[in-house]
């Protein structure tokens, strides 16, 4: 059992938990994830470790309430327990030795997932520019955290409600065109965002890592449900990733595979809402 030691509501859909998980905290690195199961009848879902404190023995996860499991997770509070958390899984992000200046791009929830990479780059003396985007100003998360670990931070909203209208792709393009020479880009967010960011960085020859978050069952290399096409080869996101070269990933294939269980997810949600509503 894993205790929720801290809960923060980041926006109406996104919540942060700090969990007591000493073994995982000891080993976690940016880019890695845990598999989590709320209770006996729960499903196993992958969640990226967005921070860790080795001394306190705690890890932080940030999740968006998009389906039944994440909604149910969101109803838990400080002091509650999660039945199963296994990790740290996947390969840590490898930045390469000679990175001088990096751009970290986060879309929505992806901002929290990109944060540990920005932090690690910043701590190792790399100049970090961060570009984070949200649908509107109420959905902005991790602004302060990102500010603390970047030399330049751009926050964009789709509707311009924070005074800076536009997509992260446009912001990135202007930064590059303004003469910023990046030797690394890290892009984490919705598949479609990572696809278009990768297309831009490819044009400018900037090495780019994206973080894939496909459907997973075990998270340890056993089921193959998380397979992604990278450079024409089949890779398992759980053991070979979740980070991959954005210029090699087949995003269209990934988007199709992500839709596989849409109908069942909806069915599960309906049952969940029904229960919350007091009906059966």
């Amino acid at each position: 059992m894993f205790k929720i030691v801290k809960k923060r509501v980041l926006n109406e859909q996104v919540k942060l938990f700090t969990l007591a998980a000493p073994y995982i905290a000891k080993k976690a690195e940016p880019g890695q994830f845990v598999m989590l199961r709320i209770n006996e009848t729960g499903e196993r879902i992958p969640l990226t470790i967005s921070d860790y404190d080795r001394e306190k023995g705690e890890i932080t996860i940030v999740f968006q309430e998009v389906g039944k499991t994440t909604k149910e997770l969101g109803t838990l509070n400080e002091g509650d327990f999660i039945q199963d958390v296994a990790g740290p899984l996947g390969q840590p992000t490898h930045f390469g030795a000679d990175v001088k200046k990096a751009v970290v791009i986060g879309g929505g929830l992806g901002t929290a997932i990109a944060y540990p990479s920005a932090k690690k780059l910043h701590q190792s003396g790399v100049e970090v520019h961060a570009v984070i985007g949200f649908r509107n100003k109420d959905l902005i998360i991790y602004e302060e955290e990102m500010k603390a670990v970047s030399d330049k931070l751009i926050v964009a909203t789709d509707d311009g409600s924070n005074g800076n209208k536009g997509f992260v792709t446009e912001m990135l393009k202007s930064l590059i065109e303004a003469g910023n020479k990046y030797d690394l880009a890290i892009a984490i967010g919705p598949l479609v965002m990572m696809k278009f960011v990768s297309a831009i960085t490819k044009e400018y020859g900037i090495k780019t890592f994206v973080s894939m978050n496909p459907i997973m069952i075990d998270g340890t290399g056993m089921c193959g449900g998380c397979r992604v096409q990278v450079g024409g080869k089949t890779k398992f996101a759980c053991v070979d990733g979740p980070d991959f070269d954005g210029h090699e990933v087949d995003f269209d294939d990934a988007m199709r595979r992500q839709q596989m269980y849409k109908a069942e997810e909806n069915q599960s949600m309906e049952k969940h809402n029904c229960r919350l509503g007091g009906g059966q």
Partner: peptide, 10 residues
């Protein structure tokens, strides 16, 4: 046993 259990199979 879906949806009693959360993991689906088509």
């Amino acid at each position: 046993k879906f949806p009693e259990y959360d993991t689906p199979i088509k």
